[in-house]
C-alpha cells in the first residue's frame, strides 16, 4: 500500500471518528487481556489451617469474593490462575506446595493468606516454613492472624490492580515469573 492510499484511509477513519458515526471504542490489547484476566480468576485454595475458616467466610455470601470475579474454586491447579495459600505450611508440605505451583498454567499469581504464609507467623520452630516466599514466588501478601475478610478483599483488589498493569507478551505467555523446577520427592506408598 503506498503512502497516498494509506493517508486516504486514515483520513476517512479520523472523519468517521469525528462524526461519531457508530458506537465503538478503541483500546489496547493489553488492557483487554488484563481486564478479562483480573475479573475471571479461578482460584486454587491450598488450605491447611485455621485461616481456612476465614477463607470460607470471605468466599461465602456475606463477604462474597464473587463480587470481584474470583469465587470459582478449581480443585485442580491446572485449571486455576490464583494460588491462595491459606494457613501454616510445614516443611513436610513444602514440596507439595511447590509441585502444585509448578502444575499451574501461566499466567498465574500467588496470594500469601495470613501471617503463617507471609513469614511463618507465630511459629518459628523445626516444623514450619518461614514464609512461603522462600519456596515459591508470591505476588500479594495479606497479613493477619487470621486476616479480616476486608483485608483479603483489599489484597485481592491490589492484586487486580497489579494484573491490570501487567504487560502481556506478544506470544501471550508470561515469563516474568521465574520458572521453577522443584526437586520432586516421589515416594512409594508403603
Amino acid at each position: 500500500m503506498d503512502a497516498e492510499i494509506q493517508k486516504r484511509y486514515s483520513d476517512r477513519a479520523i472523519e468517521f471518528l469525528r462524526q461519531g458515526g457508530d458506537s465503538f471504542q478503541t483500546t489496547k490489547v493489553d488492557a483487554v487481556f488484563n481486564w478479562g484476566r483480573k475479573y475471571s480468576m479461578f482460584l486454587y485454595p491450598f488450605v491447611t489451617a485455621c485461616c481456612g475458616m476465614e477463607f470460607m467466610s470471605v468466599a461465602g455470601p456475606r463477604y462474597d469474593l464473587d463480587r470481584f470475579g474470583c469465587a470459582l474454586p478449581r480443585f485442580s491447579p491446572r485449571q486455576s490462575d490464583l494460588l491462595m495459600v491459606v494457613g501454616t505450611i510445614t516443611h513436610r508440605q513444602a514440596p507439595i506446595l511447590q509441585k502444585v505451583y509448578a502444575q499451574m498454567a501461566e499466567p498465574k499469581w500467588v496470594m500469601a493468606f495470613g501471617a503463617c504464609t507471609c513469614s511463618g507467623g507465630p511459629y518459628n520452630n523445626y516444623a514450619v516454613v518461614q514464609g512461603i516466599d522462600t519456596i515459591i514466588p508470591v505476588d500479594i501478601y495479606v497479613p493477619g492472624c487470621p486476616p479480616r475478610p476486608e483485608a483479603v478483599l483489599d489484597g485481592l483488589m491490589k492484586l487486580q490492580a497489579r494484573v491490570q498493569a501487567e504487560r502481556v507478551p506478544a506470544d501471550g505467555r508470561h515469563q516474568d515469573t521465574e520458572e521453577l523446577t522443584p526437586p520432586v520427592v516421589e515416594k512409594p506408598i508403603p
Partner: peptide, 15 residues
C-alpha cells in the same frame, strides 16, 4: 537437647 534453631527443610533455604 534438640537445638532450638536447628532446621531441616526438604526444599528451600535452611531458614
Amino acid at each position: 537437647d534438640y537445638a532450638k534453631e536447628k532446621r531441616q527443610p526438604l526444599v528451600g533455604p535452611g531458614n
